[in-house]
C-alpha cells in the first residue's frame, strides 16, 4: 500500500486519518488507523477475507459507514483486520478486509471502539493531489 495513516487528538477520544493517492487508498488507510486504535496492525495476520458493501448519499457518510461496518464485523466475528482492498463507484463502496480472530493474549487490545462519528469528519483531495479521509472514533 502506498498511503499512510495517523491518529490525531480529540479530548476524550481519538481521531483517525488515512492519506493515499486515491480515494480508495485513503479509505483503506483510515481502516488501518481504526485497527491501530485497538491493536498494533502489524500483529494482525491478514489470513481470512471478509467482504463488506455499504452505500451512502455522500463520501463523508460513506467513510463513517465503512468504518462502522468494520466495527460490526469486529464485534460479531471477533476479528481484527489489517489489510484492505477498497473499490468505490459512485455512492457505493465494496471492499475486502483481511484479518484474523482476536487473540487477547497476543494482540493485547488496548481499547474497544464504540463507533465512528461525524466529528472532524472530512473526505477531501488535498492541494498535493493526495486524498485525505478522517473522523473521530468514540472509545
Amino acid at each position: 500500500m502506498s498511503g499512510r495513516f495517523e491518529h490525531f487528538v480529540h479530548g476524550a477520544d481519538i481521531g483517525i486519518r488515512g492519506i493515499g493517492p486515491t480515494l480508495e487508498e485513503a479509505f483503506a488507510q483510515t481502516a488501518r488507523a481504526l485497527t491501530a486504535v485497538m491493536v498494533d496492525p502489524e500483529q494482525v495476520a491478514p489470513r481470512e477475507p471478509v467482504t463488506i458493501a455499504v452505500s451512502a448519499p455522500d463520501e463523508e457518510t460513506l467513510l463513517v459507514d465503512w468504518l462502522n461496518a468494520l466495527l460490526f464485523e469486529t464485534a460479531t466475528r471477533h476479528m481484527l483486520f489489517s489489510r484492505f482492498a477498497v473499490r468505490i463507484a459512485g455512492n457505493r463502496l465494496e471492499a475486502t478486509a483481511w484479518g484474523e480472530p482476536i487473540d487477547p493474549l497476543r494482540h493485547q487490545p488496548a481499547v474497544e471502539v464504540k463507533g465512528a462519528t461525524m466529528t472532524e469528519l472530512a473526505v477531501r483531495r488535498q492541494p498535493d493531489g493526495t486524498w485525505l479521509a478522517q473522523c473521530v472514533v468514540d472509545v
Binding site: P57, T61, N68, F72, K114, G115, A116, M118, D138
Partner: peptide, 17 residues
C-alpha cells in the same frame, strides 16, 4: 455494550440525513 453503540451509530446517521 455493542447494542447501544450500534443504535447510537444508526440513529445518528439517520437523524443527520
Amino acid at each position: 455494550r455493542g447494542l447501544g453503540h450500534q443504535i447510537g451509530t444508526e440513529f445518528l446517521r439517520e437523524m443527520a440525513l
